[in-house]
Design a protein around this nucleic acid. Structure first.
Lengths: 131, 131
DNA sequence: CTAGTTGCAAAGAGTTTGCATGGCG
DNA sequence: CGCCATGCAAACTCTTTGCAACTAG
């Protein structure tokens, strides 16, 4: 079982660069293709988005009201107790570094036998401005 | 602008009855069609699901790992502390009714100014069997 | 040169829509 | 009866896959 090593290509650079230029903003594949913000074929775009998500460089969301997935640049991700709060109205992504969440993960592990991956979990709701 | 009044049909009864018989469980349209749990055409199923969501009788979710929407019986809107744990390996969805989560929501509201919608939030990780 | 990557087009999954038939009230 | 709901199939949207040409290392 060997790891496939990956190449450094223009397309991947461009995709990552685009997202890093818009931290805190979400884009769905469709609009990236439509706007031609990145000169990349749609198949490649989808493949690259999936790749970057796997590498932890992007984050993937789904929106209840549309049937497409949204992607966003993932700035920092080294912290274990780092959760994300995503506003359903303005789309803002809040990074929450908080010891309380550590307790929550402990609780869920101990009482529910479930190991929460904070990096993959997003709490949806409404931020201060929007409620 | 008049309200279209809606009829009381066998199909709608069946759909609602099915969901109310499984409170706390999620189903996607696909599996309902495949399992033939409800003898209803797929178009009608989708139309009915949308209708029931509008009426507040069902809740709609989206899952990051699959591209389909999930629906669940909405018992009472007061069930604010019901969270979902989704296993990244076996795909199991665990329903967690727990007072601890109520405290967490309180904490996030008070200290982070964010109102978490538990119905829309899914925590990802690994269940007891899979880790 | 070799293996991963691209782009096109075609396939696939999930969902919506058009339209004639059927059923509630 | 009138009008809404149903079911089928076709259309649509978003995403994935197959494949030949291409390119990074």
């Amino acid at each position: 079982m060997k790891e496939a090593r990956s190449y450094r290509t223009k397309q991947r650079e461009m995709v990552l660069q685009f997202f890093s230029a818009h931290p805190g903003k979400c884009f769905c594949a469709k609009e990236l293709i439509a706007q031609k913000s990145i000169p990349v074929g749609s198949a490649t775009l989808y493949r690259t988005l999936a790749l970057l998500c796997q590498e932890g460089k992007l984050k993937k969301y789904t929106d209840v009201s549309s049937n497409s997935a949204f992607y966003q640049y993932n700035e920092s991700d080294s912290c274990h107790y780092h959760f994300h709060l995503k506003c359903l109205r303005c789309g803002r992504l809040i990074h929450m570094d908080c010891n309380f969440m550590k307790d929550m993960q402990e609780h869920i592990k101990t009482n529910h036998g479930f190991l929460v991956d904070s990096g993959k979990s997003v709490l949806y709701g409404f931020c201060q401005k929007c409620r």
